Simulated scan of single mutants.
Amino acid sequence: MCPPAAVDAGDRLADPQIGGLTSSLAERELALEEGWIVLTGGMTDAVPLEPDRPVTAEFTHLGGVTVSCGEARPM
């Protein structure tokens, strides 16, 4: 599987939905954990990307987009 894009904590918390989620979790003594994926309003289920296997999304009136990734490399 392809690694997720890195986002630093400042960017993450600047998003109102993520900031609200982290606050709500903190009130319950819970927290987001490293490596978790949070979808804020995803239109479909999350689809894992596999190396060299493209995934295409088609949008009415907009067209389509295809994404793919190569083999994961150590950071």
Rank of each mutant, 00 (worst) to 15 (best):
L62M: 11
I37M: 04
V38R: 01
R28V: 07
E29I: 07
P54A: 01
L30V: 12
L25I: 04
D8M: 03
G20K: 09
L21A: 13
T56D: 02
R53D: 05
R53Q: 08
P51T: 00
S68H: 06
A72R: 14
T44W: 00
A31V: 12
G20H: 10
W36C: 14
E33C: 08
R53L: 10
T60S: 08
E71W: 03
E29Q: 15
S23Q: 15
P4D: 11
T44C: 02
A57M: 05
L21D: 08
G19C: 14
A9E: 12
V7H: 06
I18A: 04
W36E: 15
A26C: 13
S68W: 06
M43D: 13
P74M: 11
E71I: 03
E34L: 06
A14C: 02
G10T: 12
V38M: 01
C69Q: 00
R53Y: 02
G41M: 01
M1W: 11
P4L: 09
A5K: 15
R73H: 09
D45G: 15
L39C: 05
L32G: 06
L13A: 08
L13S: 10
A6G: 12
G70W: 03
P3Q: 09
G63L: 04
R28H: 07
E29C: 12
L30A: 15
L13I: 12
S68K: 11
L49K: 07
L25A: 01
A5M: 12
F59D: 04
G42H: 00
A31F: 04
G20Q: 11
G10D: 13
L21I: 14
T56K: 04
H61T: 14
G35A: 11
G35E: 10
P74R: 14
T56H: 03
F59G: 03
R28M: 11
R28G: 10
A72E: 08
D15H: 15
E27D: 13
P4K: 13
F59L: 10
A46P: 13
Q17E: 07
G63Q: 06
A9V: 09
W36G: 15
T66V: 03
G10A: 14
D8L: 03
G70V: 00
S68F: 07
D52C: 07
V55W: 01
P54L: 00
L39P: 03
S68M: 06
E33Y: 09
T22R: 09
Q17C: 05
V47R: 08
T56E: 07
E71P: 05
G64P: 05
S68L: 02
G64N: 04
L62K: 03
A6M: 10
P16H: 05
E50W: 00
G63V: 01
H61Y: 13
